[in-house]
């Protein structure tokens, strides 16, 4: 392996997706290095979310190749793909989508449980601490502020130390101050956990934060 050209964490080639037979989306090739960060920019409807979902294995492409680490996920069966997603990919969505019936801690514990990895109490404490949520562990998620809820969602995404973090519009609903805080947080937790970060957004404020950018 060439040190000047490190192993890609995410690689996308010749990707096609069709919602219906006559509407076909064609995506540019993509290559993000291990531990790197990349912005997917584009207006609403340009297919950012679709590409993110394809990379996360939530959608099946019509054609093309998607590699996460060494695995071509387009070749995986649905069940294997579910398992792969749980172990290697963490999602952060624009809306936080926490499970309201569960406490903060139980929301976090869903991640290792559903991914089929054993849960590590110390790891949960560490992540809660990193995100300033230590005293909220047993709080009802409905009582959290928007910012706190978003931090819980980020904590959940990084708990399993995923190879790749996929974030869909994580900042578009936030004011400048919170936008800065969230992007700094994402960058720092990604670094701490050695995760590759891919953010799909139309938020122009992020352009100055991440160098690698792909425009759809």
């Amino acid at each position: 392996m060439n040190p000047a050209n490190p192993a890609p964490a995410i690689e996308v080639r010749n990707l096609l997706y069709s919602y219906t037979t006559d509407k076909v989306l064609r995506f540019p090739d993509l290559h993000v290095n291990k531990g790197g960060q990349c912005l997917l920019l584009g207006e609403s409807g340009s297919g950012k979310t679709t590409l993110l979902h394809l990379i996360g294995g939530l959608l099946k492409p019509g054609q093309g190749m998607i590699r996460i680490g060494d695995t071509d996920i387009t070749k995986l069966s649905e069940h294997k793909l579910d398992h792969f997603r749980g172990q290697h990919i963490g999602f952060v969505f624009q809306k936080n989508h926490l499970i309201t019936a569960l406490t903060v801690k139980k929301n976090l514990l869903m991640a290792p449980f559903l991914a089929g990895v054993s849960h590590d109490e110390a790891r949960v404490q560490t992540v809660l601490q990193e995100l300033g949520l230590a005293e909220k562990a047993n709080a009802d998620v409905r009582q959290l502020s928007h910012g706190q809820a978003q931090r819980v969602a980020i904590a959940r995404a990084v708990l399993n130390k995923p190879d790749v973090i996929l974030a869909d519009e994580p900042t578009s609903a936030l004011d400048d101050k919170n936008c800065d805080r969230v992007i700094e947080l994402l960058l720092s937790v990604a670094k701490q956990n050695q995760s590759t970060l891919l953010i799909a957004t139309h938020d122009q404020r992020l352009k100055s934060k991440i160098a690698q950018q792909i425009i759809l």
Partner: peptide
Amino acid sequence: KYDLAIMRSMGAARST
């Protein structure tokens, strides 16, 4: 339905 979708994104199979 969001809970269910989130669970899938975290690795839950349809059968789960």
